[in-house]
Every structure is written in structure tokens, then in C-alpha cells.
Design a protein around this nucleic acid. Sequence first.
DNA 1: ACAAAATATGAACACATGTTCATATATAGA
DNA 2: TCTATATATGAACATGTGTTCATATTTTGT
Lengths: 109, 109
Amino acid sequence: MSISGEKQEKTGLSLDTLFELSEFFKFFGDTTRIRIIEILLSGEISVNEIAEKLNLGQSAVSHQLRILRTAGLVKPRRVGRTVFYALDDEHIGLIFNTGLAHILHKKGE
Amino acid sequence: MSISGEKQEKTGLSLDTLFELSEFFKFFGDTTRIRIIEILLSGEISVNEIAEKLNLGQSAVSHQLRILRTAGLVKPRRVGRTVFYALDDEHIGLIFNTGLAHILHKKGE
DNA sequence: ACAAAATATGAACACATGTTCATATATAGA
DNA sequence: TCTATATATGAACATGTGTTCATATTTTGT
């Protein structure tokens, strides 16, 4: 009755899970955040250095870092008055690179 | 002079590429689109069937399908007056599952 | 050709989101 | 304690985005 049913059953992911998944991808869906993530792929770096590299205001960067920090994608380490940020999760680089591989692949067609 | 430089060089991704990457992830950053993608992982399906499964209006679904279609993530096939949609790119499932693995991993901590 | 069914699309509206500006907090040094 | 530096945060503002409603388009059957 499960396999021979008249309609194909769904994968079984809950609405909550799918919502969380879309919320997760949202973090990658902003140019500033993606650029921050790319920088962090090279290692730990301070807020001001990020702002300089991105040519953005310190406030804008700090706001985005808070979003990434709250989401657990990024982890702060305080040294004196400067705060260094690093990627908190090994998967972040994987997802970044998977997406990157996709668009590079698309370009090469 | 490249390896022993005083500052670490960047990965070398252009602003354009990083912008495209964030735009790409944006497609996954919406609950409705993620749910559509999940449904399409099970195979081709018509617009109305998607709307029924999602309990959403036909218009809302059609609008989202247009976004996914324009982005090349989804491909239409017309049969009579009904249009069946399917994932156009093999990578879509990979990215979906990579993100899914991440949040499921996070939950299990 | 006409009516019905399936899908697409434009406009309007509500809501989310990112940046800026001003200011607060925290830490180091004198 | 006072000042300077680094970062964080709240409010305001502008822009982007998704849904709804109405309507257009496409195709089938009569």
C-alpha cells in the first residue's frame, strides 16, 4: 500500500526542515556576505580588514557579521580590541565551492 | 614573490563571479522555491499539481517557476495545455542535498 | 469559431532586507 | 580616569521580493 499507491509519496522532509534549508541558503544569497565568506576561506581576519578589502563601511560589515555569527557560520575571537572572524563550520566552504562549480560549469557551455 | 609576499593574496574570484554566486544561492533562499525544488527532485510534475501540493495559488507558483526557469534551474515541457516542469541541471540536487546535510548535521549536535 | 481548462503575466501591495548615520560598548595606553 | 581605537547596535530610509488579483495567452474539444 506504500509502494503501489496511486500517487508517488514525497521525500518526507518536513515543512520546518525545508524552511530552515531556505533560511540557510539565504545567508549565501547576498553579495556582501558571499564576499565575506570568500575572504574567510583564506583564514581568520579582523572586521576592519574585511571592511577595507570590501571597500564598505565598518557598520555594514559588522551587521553582516552579526547575521553570520548568529547563524553559526562564523566565529569571533577577541584579541585586545580587535575581533577576528573565522568560518565556524567545515561545510561552509563545501557549499560555497559546490555553488561556484555550478556557475563556472554553466559559463563553460 | 608570490608565496613569500607580506600579505596573503586572495582566491582570485572576480566581483562578477561572486555576485553571480550570491544570485545563484538566492534561488534556494525562498521557502516556496525550495519546496518546488524538493518536489521536482522526485521528477517531472505539472504547475497545478505543484500548486496543490504546496497549497498555494497557481499564480504564485507560476511566478516562482518563471524565476527558476529564467535562471535555468528548471525546464518546461508542454503536453497539450499542461506544462510539466523538471530540474534542468544535475547540480541542483547536489546543492540541495549539501545544504540539507549541513542543517541536519547541525541538528544532531 | 466558441467555451473551457491550464498556464503566464502585469500591477499593486505588504513585507523583508541591506546600508547609512549616529551612538553605544569594550579595551588599551597614558 | 581620560582618550583613542575597534567593534557593535539601534533607528531610519531606500530598495528588493513574494503574493494576490485580474487578465491575457495557449490549447483542446465541440
